[in-house]
């Protein structure tokens, strides 16, 4: 990274901190000094409840446990979604027959929101973790599939010709040209999918459970505890932000070649 880049980054981080501080200040003012205070728990009460949740359990567990359980559910589902999404996407993009068979079904299933699957999911997989994996999986796999599909479709035909001219056979064209040129598209899909999967966690944990950040929100809603709801929301926001940032860092590392003109 160049010097200019680094100072640019510092600026971005500094302005982000200022924006957050201002946001919390405005929140605090609205929730204590305006008539809206009856509807919004105060920033100080939510933040202190959030900090307390690290040593005083919400339900049976403390915050680290809730986060870990939700992360586990999301990462398992995300892993399965990566695997199936990339394979389906490549099949659809590369083989006409696969496209003809899978695409209509896929386009039909795509607009159904993960939440709508909960009843069927409970019927098929029960109320254990499998159901939750399934709901989160549905929340992220479409993004990976669509992006991989588009990526495989948009491989530059001149590059395929160039590989053939250099002596590559069908298999080598696929492995050494089609797949690598699809990678940036796959990563864009993974990026959206990890965020989508993580936000599906609230829905998934509607299915009977006694832990997870989604459960904190759902249980807060059931018991009318708005502070607890917002503590859960805060945890989801923070972890989601970290996941997206980690994904972007991984992408930068693995797709070095895809960075724009920089000499």
């Amino acid at each position: 990274m160049t010097k200019a880049n680094r100072s640019e980054r510092k600026k971005v981080i500094r302005s982000a901190i200022i924006v957050f501080a201002a946001f919390i200040a405005v929140w605090q003012i609205i929730s204590t000094l305006t008539p809206l205070r009856d509807f919004v728990p105060s920033a100080s009460s939510v933040i202190s409840a959030f900090i307390r949740s690290f040593y005083i359990p919400i339900g049976k567990h403390t915050m680290p446990h809730h986060v870990a359980v939700s992360l586990f559910r999301v990462l398992v589902a995300f892993g399965i979604a990566c695997f199936t999404g990339v394979i389906l996407g490549v099949l659809m993009g590369y083989f006409r027959i696969a496209e003809a068979i899978i695409k209509p079904i896929f386009e039909f299933i795509r607009p159904i929101p993960p939440l709508a699957w909960i009843p069927m999911s409970i019927l098929w997989f029960g109320i254990g973790n499998t159901s939750k994996f399934f709901i989160i999986f549905l929340g992220c796999f479409t993004f990976i599939t669509v992006n991989t599909y588009v990526g495989t479709k948009s491989v530059d035909p001149v590059l395929i010709g160039a590989a053939r001219m250099l002596g590559a056979n069908e298999r080598q064209v696929f492995l050494r040209v089609v797949l690598p040129s699809t990678v940036p598209y796959i990563f864009a899909g993974l990026h959206i999918a990890i965020t989508a999967g993580w936000s599906a966690v609230v829905g998934a944990e509607l299915i009977r459970s006694d832990d997870g950040v989604g459960w904190i929100v759902n249980m807060g809603m059931v018991t009318g505890n708005t502070v607890q709801v917002m503590v859960g929301m805060m945890a989801i926001g923070i972890v989601g932000f970290v996941l997206a940032t980690a994904m972007a860092a991984l992408e930068r590392r693995l797709c070095k070649w895809n960075q724009q003109e920089g000499m």
């Binding site: 530059d156 001149v158 590059l159 010709g161 160039a162 050494r176 040209v177 690598p180 070649w257 895809n258």
Partner: peptide, 10 residues
């Protein structure tokens, strides 16, 4: 090639 057509990931 006129478009050069290098493999950008290599």
């Amino acid at each position: 090639y006129q478009t050069i057509a290098l493999f950008p990931w290599l």
